[in-house]
Design a protein around this nucleic acid. Structure first.
Length: 585
RNA sequence: GGGGUCGUGGUGCAGUUGGUUAGCACAUCGGCCUGUCAAGCCGAAGGUCGCGGGUUCAAGUCCCGUCGGCCCCGCCA
């Protein structure tokens, strides 16, 4: 390399005119006029136009340049002639008149377009990830990610948190997601597990007296993937001692305020609203409601129990519910639009959907006659329906009605374009149930995790009425996505043992799997609690991406493959023998 | 595990009720061209229509299977 760069491709402007500079980068585009050649040279910082004239020493080599060749130019910064300024480029007022060129490397014709918009299928982007990551759009995402990490580290350090690394090779534990297992060579037949989260370690760090811990850390869960889920992902993990719920909330809210200010220049208001879990479910049909639009769910069971519409009255009498949402100004929906909605809810398991167009005090359509004026009035009043609105009702089990209406709310909001791009609605979801019943395993499982403390008033009900016990847990929801979740932990051995018993984990098993934690709690564990953020999801929202893969450098496909290096792959017999593993045929 | 959707030159797409030699744009190669910035003009090369099987006189198109991408359900303390 003979030409050492003096500037990057995004920094020169009219201030630098007549300077001799050296730029290095990739050929973004070439415009060869036969005589004059223009090269758009690209690096991480931007694009600068290079002009190569036929008289230039660089001309002969410049003629060979193609897309993505790596090249350095030495030349003079000149003002562009009148009318030739490119306002789309930060460096568009100037160009470099090339004097010398050094081609550092050539490139095959790239299999995907680097300049301009995404124009390639995702499997190709993943196979040639190093080229995909060369795209400015992708680099922008990773700059946001980097800045977020910087803000997080600075924030927690300022607030006396200590970043401590915890092991990736740990003990496999029951409960929660499926573990990724790592076979042990030294101990044939035994396995490490990759952490689903550093949960137990951070609690032990509290017992150790670190008081305030955080870590930006990889976590691993061997479950099926989604647009917002990868088998390995990054958490911002936090734990604090001698605190209560409101302390964690305050620490997190201040962090969020700083993140939005520094990254998006948006002032968000703290404190964030708190919504009890039960209210979130009944109003929004979700424990992570998107609050950027209204479309609330209303339970009208009590209003229709005596109506002549059998579908509704019978549903309520049999202990199920009738509930609906009011779609503003949608009475104009066509027969087809309504049929599509009906099909949409049926696909999700509903028996049907009652759609009613509000016309003054009357309802358009055949359902009108089943309801007295009084019932209609009450429903309209409860749902705050206006002339021209469309009411959509579901009658079924509580669980089905609210979950489908919750999905329908989002579906309608998207179709009706009720969601504005630059709005950010944060909310805490609180008062979660501690347990939920798992019908497959026929036992109660921890909704959050088995170390979550119950509300003190509910401790007596743990073994007798587990479904009524509330947790000292909290989720942070941003625009309909869970971005953080945490709890106050159990710091007392007896309570922890009681918790395991409630989960159907026998004393022996509890000791075998979590004995180290139970033992630690006996040696002066301080009251403690914490929270963990999904860093990838947060970056995804901040970068306005639809998929988590856009903010992970080398992600897996939906079937958990890495298309670039073809992982997972078969391994040699020697490797298997060392690990004492025999593959099933 | 289940459902939906997609797979056609290097890339992105079109291809009708099955019917001549599978078409377009970009990229590539060659020619012309000194102010372009998605440069332009002329020309050329480039295809096992994901893979396997079937129906048919005839399959990119219909059927079955399979592989892969994406989305969703289950799953994700």
């Amino acid at each position: 390399m003979e030409l050492r760069r003096t500037h990057n491709c995004g920094e020169l402007d009219s201030q630098d005119i007549s300077k001799t500079v050296i730029l290095s980068g990739w050929v973004d585009r070439r415009r060869d006029h036969g005589g004059l050649i223009f090269i758009d040279l690209r690096d991480r910082w931007g694009i600068t136009q290079i002009r190569i004239e036929p008289v230039s020493k660089a001309y002969k080599d410049a003629k060979r340049l193609r897309s993505e060749f790596v090249v350095s130019f030495k030349g003079i910064v000149v003002e562009r002639p009148e009318g030739m300024i490119n306002k789309k480029l930060k460096t568009g007022e100037i160009e470099i008149v090339a004097e010398e060129i050094e081609i550092l490397n050539e490139s095959l014709t790239p299999p995907l377009h680097i300049s301009g918009e995404v124009n390639s299928s995702e499997d190709l982007r993943l196979k040639y990830r190093y080229l995909d990551l060369r795209r400015p759009e992708m680099q922008k995402n990773f700059l946001i990610r980097h800045k977020l990490c910087q803000i997080v580290r600075q924030y927690f350090s300022e607030n006396n948190f200590v970043e401590v690394e915890t092991p990736f090779l740990m003990k496999s534990t029951p409960e929660g997601a499926r573990d990724f297992l790592v076979p042990s060579r030294v101990w044939n037949g035994r396995f490490y597990a990759l952490p689903q989260s550093p949960q137990t370690y951070k609690q032990l760090l509290m017992v150790a007296g670190f008081d305030r811990y955080f870590q930006i850390v990889k976590c691993f869960r061997d479950e099926d993937l989604r647009a917002d889920r990868q088998p390995e992902f990054t958490q911002i993990d936090v734990e604090m001692s001698f605190i209560d719920v409101h302390d964690i909330i305050a620490v997190v809210e201040n962090l969020m305020v700083r993140i939005f200010k520094n990254l998006l220049d948006i002032e968000i208001k703290s404190p964030f609203i708190k919504i009890p879990y039960s209210e979130a479910m009944s109003k929004y049909g979700s424990d992570k409601p998107d609050l950027r639009f209204d479309l609330q769910i209303f339970n009208i069971s009590d209003l229709v129990v005596e109506s002549d519409f059998k579908v509704f009255s019978d549903t309520v009498k049999s202990g199920n519910v009738v509930a609906g949402i009011c779609a503003r100004n949608c009475a104009g929906f066509s027969r087809k639009q309504i049929d599509d909605l009906i099909q949409w809810v049926k696909d999700r398991g509903a028996k049907g959907l009652a759609a009613i167009k509000v016309k003054g005090t009357d309802w358009e359509g055949s359902l009108n006659k089943f309801f007295t004026e009084n019932i209609r009035k009450n429903i309209v009043r409860k749902m705050d329906a206006k002339d021209g609105d469309l009411l959509l009702f579901l009658a079924d089990t509580t669980e089905l009605v609210f979950s489908i209406l919750g999905d329908l709310r989002i579906y309608l909001a998207k179709n009706l374009k009720l969601i504005s791009e630059n709005e950010y609605k944060l909310a805490w979801i609180v008062d979660f149930p501690l347990f939920e019943y798992n019908s497959e395993e026929k036992r109660y499982v921890a909704r959050h995790h088995p170390f979550t403390s119950p509300k003190l008033a509910d401790i007596d009900k743990i073994l007798t009425e587990p479904e009524k016990v509330q947790a000292r847990a909290y989720d942070l929801v941003l625009n309909g996505m869970e971005i953080a979740g945490g709890s106050i932990r159990i710091s007392n051995t007896e309570l922890q043992q009681k918790m395991f018993r409630a989960l159907g984990i026998g004393d022996e098993e509890a000791n075998d799997k979590f004995g180290f934690l139970l033992e630690a709690l006996n040696y002066g564990a301080p009251p403690h609690g914490g929270i963990a953020f999904g860093l990838d999801r947060l970056v995804m929202i901040l970068a306005k991406c639809i998929s988590i893969r856009e903010v992970i450098a080398f992600p897996k496909t939906a079937s958990a493959m890495s298309l670039m290096d073809n992982a997972p792959s078969v391994v040699s017999q020697v490797q298997l023998d060392e690990l004492g593993i025999k593959l099933k045929k």
